[in-house]
């Protein structure tokens, strides 16, 4: 992989994580437990779609084959997506959605805090802009983890089940791809392993307040960064991509 290809792949990962999670959150619209929760979930979805657009636009420019953000979002097949397995997981109940959001936004906040210092000015600029949004997402999710963990017996159990679903996907977030080595040493990409301590500390503090037990991580499941996804992503894309695929000549 050339340096340019490695940067394309890295930027795609950033964009695909935001895009796919946004798509999942959009499914909640009109169906959340209360109007306020509905608004906050779609708010997060809206921020993420903005981030996805910026990263995918840049990825298309890096690639230099004339693909724009829409082309990348709507005309790639499942094995070309580079998002983590965590973000494509189905929403489940509100407990699982919150668990997924807490894990992802806590990771993403730590990531953007570093990425805003990237030697690639575009990545740095997008991360700096997105950090404010992501900080809000992480706080919102942590507040819900505390509410649900500390709330009732049922909510405690449900949010615990939600986290149980997600633990196997955590490791992937903190694992660099072999092709990243050059980008990391050039100060372009962030070494995700370095973000783990901050993630663990936030998790410990939030779980203490939420009266939740710290996780016993199972064997990790990975593959998303290479395009080996769960069965869920194909269905998500079938829904998301159907119009541009059905009418390839149309402009919307």
């Amino acid at each position: 992989m050339t340096a340019n290809e490695a940067l394309f792949d890295y930027t795609l990962r950033l964009g695909d994580d935001a895009l796919i999670l946004s798509q999942r959150l959009g499914e909640w619209c009109g169906h959340a437990p209360a109007l306020e929760a509905d608004l906050s979930l779609t708010n997060v979805a809206l921020d993420l779609i903005g981030q996805a657009t910026l990263f995918l636009t840049y990825a298309g420019e890096i690639e230099g084959k004339g693909r724009d953000a829409d082309k990348l979002a709507f005309h790639r097949d499942v094995n070309k997506f580079r998002n983590s397995l965590l973000v494509e997981q189905p929403n489940g109940d509100f407990g699982r959605t919150i668990a997924r959001q807490f894990i992802f936004s806590t990771y993403q906040r730590a990531l953007y805090q570093e990425l805003m210092r990237s030697s690639d000015p575009r990545l740095a600029e997008i991360a700096a802009k997105a950090l404010k949004e992501t900080t809000y997402h992480a706080e919102l999710a942590a507040e819900w983890v505390v509410r649900l963990g500390d709330g009732t017996e049922e909510s405690h159990e449900r949010v615990e089940d939600g986290f149980e679903w997600c633990w196997r996907f955590v490791e992937e977030l903190f694992t660099a791809e072999p092709a990243d080595a050059g980008l990391i040493s050039a100060g372009i990409a962030v070494d995700p392993a370095k973000l783990r301590a901050s993630f663990d500390a936030t998790l410990a503090a939030t779980f203490a307040e939420a009266t939740l037990a710290l996780p016993k991580y199972p064997r990790p499941v990975t593959g998303g960064r290479k395009g080996h996804h769960s069965e869920h992503l194909g269905h998500l894309l079938a829904e998301m991509q159907f119009l541009p695929r059905a009418y390839p000549d149309a402009v919307w």
Binding site: E27, T42, D70, L243
Partner: peptide, 27 residues
């Protein structure tokens, strides 16, 4: 909301999400 997950471009999706959110806010 039935079309948020199927909006045909990223811009259309963002605008529709924002619009439906506005409706919730009006509520």
């Amino acid at each position: 909301g039935n079309w948020i997950t199927r909006a045909p471009s990223l811009r259309r999706k963002a605008v529709l999400l924002a619009k439906v959110q506005d409706e919730g806010g009006h509520g």
